[in-house]
């Protein structure tokens, strides 16, 4: 009998503990080392003079990869695209690409990819993307 009430007590405290929401830490928005690393993985610079040309290359690369272009904004250099994780149609991969001029004749291209609303941090993903983009930009320039 005593054992049962003890178990109930322990279970009760466990349940109550689950209710306390974790406090957001002070450095929630502060840059961390991991963020700097992921940013360098997501960014690459290309020798392209025209920003519109670079954007068209980005769009072509995404289409080659089977992405659906959802939104594009030329003045801001933004492209948003998504695709279903085929052959299964319940997972979604989204990607936002920004094209910005770094210096004269050099474009900085950054890609952010998410998989089912979780950011992708695997460098291999971005390497693959930039490899396709490089090919697409090269063909465009021909």
């Amino acid at each position: 009998m005593r054992a049962i009430s003890g178990i109930i007590l322990i279970a009760g405290t466990l349940v109550l503990q689950g209710c306390a929401a974790p406090e957001p830490s002070q450095d929630l928005l502060a840059p961390t080392e991991a963020q700097m690393k992921i940013r360098s993985v997501q960014t690459r610079t290309f020798d392209v003079k025209d920003r519109q040309l670079a954007m068209r290359g980005v769009i072509a690369a995404l289409q080659d990869l089977g992405f659906i272009i959802e939104r594009a904004n030329e003045p801001l250099g933004l492209v948003t695209a998504a695709r279903f994780a085929e052959p299964n149609y319940y997972d979604v991969v989204g990607v936002t690409v920004t094209v910005r001029q770094e210096t004269e004749g050099r474009m900085m291209i950054r890609a952010n990819a998410i998989y089912n609303n979780k950011p992708i941090e695997d460098p291999k993903v971005y390497q693959n993307f930039f490899a396709t983009l490089e090919r697409s930009l090269f063909i465009t320039r021909e």
Partner: peptide, 21 residues
């Protein structure tokens, strides 16, 4: 039905890509 394709594979050109294009 549930086989999850990993994101790495989704950023690569496949054999079907040129055909689709």
């Amino acid at each position: 039905c549930v086989t999850h394709t990993q994101p790495v594979e989704l950023f690569q050109l496949t054999e079907e890509s040129p055909r689709h294009k």
